[in-house]
């Protein structure tokens, strides 16, 4: 984006415009990396008339290439670990990750199972955590709103894919 050779003033306006668009219509993609479906049906319920996340501009997308927010559920299994990384890498920058549910945060009841790598932020950096088993749709909306508010107030979270070392030391609480 910086190669447009715009003046600083125009760059500033462009950045503001992008931020405005990003905050008002975050498109989400959902991936279940080993969840029990409990969180997934609550995410789906979030989109249906009672809760209607679309009024906040949140739209569920089919393709990672169209999405701004990756909503992850469940602990990460060995088989879906690479797939989760791939989806994350396919998403255009800047991208944000919301981990939904106890398992996504800590591994939940599945801690110690042989096919479970662990929680989401052991594989990709997470920007917002929504606790609960499963979280209520209101909580999921709250998590998204908190993420958007953080974006509105401060600098967006790191947009480059962190190195392995950074991943290890990644402190999600800063957002």
């Amino acid at each position: 984006m910086t190669n447009l050779n715009l003046s600083d003033e125009w760059n500033g306006i462009l950045l503001k415009l992008k931020k405005w668009a990003r905050i008002n219509s975050p498109w989400a993609i959902h991936y279940n990396s080993g969840s029990c479906n409990g969180c997934d049906i609550e995410i789906l319920a979030t989109l249906t008339p009672r809760y209607d996340a679309e009024r906040l501009g949140v739209k569920l997308q089919g393709s990672p290439r169209h999405a701004d927010v990756l909503i992850c559920t469940g602990p990460v299994t060995l088989q879906s670990r690479d797939r989760l990384r791939r989806i994350y890498e396919q998403m255009p920058d800047p991208k944000f990750v919301v981990a939904v549910g106890s398992c996504a945060i800590s591994g939940g009841v599945f801690q110690g199972c042989y096919n479970v790598v662990g929680h989401i932020d052991e594989v990709i950096p997470v920007d917002a955590y929504v606790p609960g088993c499963p979280p209520r749709p209101e909580a999921i909306i709250d998590g998204l709103v908190k993420l958007l508010t953080a974006l509105k107030q401060g600098d967006p979270p790191p947009t480059e894919r962190p190195t392995e070392l950074e991943l290890e030391n990644y402190d999600a609480a800063t957002i």
């Binding site: 990396s33 080993g34 879906s80 199972c113 479970v116």
Partner: peptide, 14 residues
């Protein structure tokens, strides 16, 4: 299959 295989049957033994 196996994307959500967590190893529950083994986990149950522990």
């Amino acid at each position: 299959l196996g994307y959500v295989h967590r190893g529950i049957e083994k986990g149950a033994e522990a």
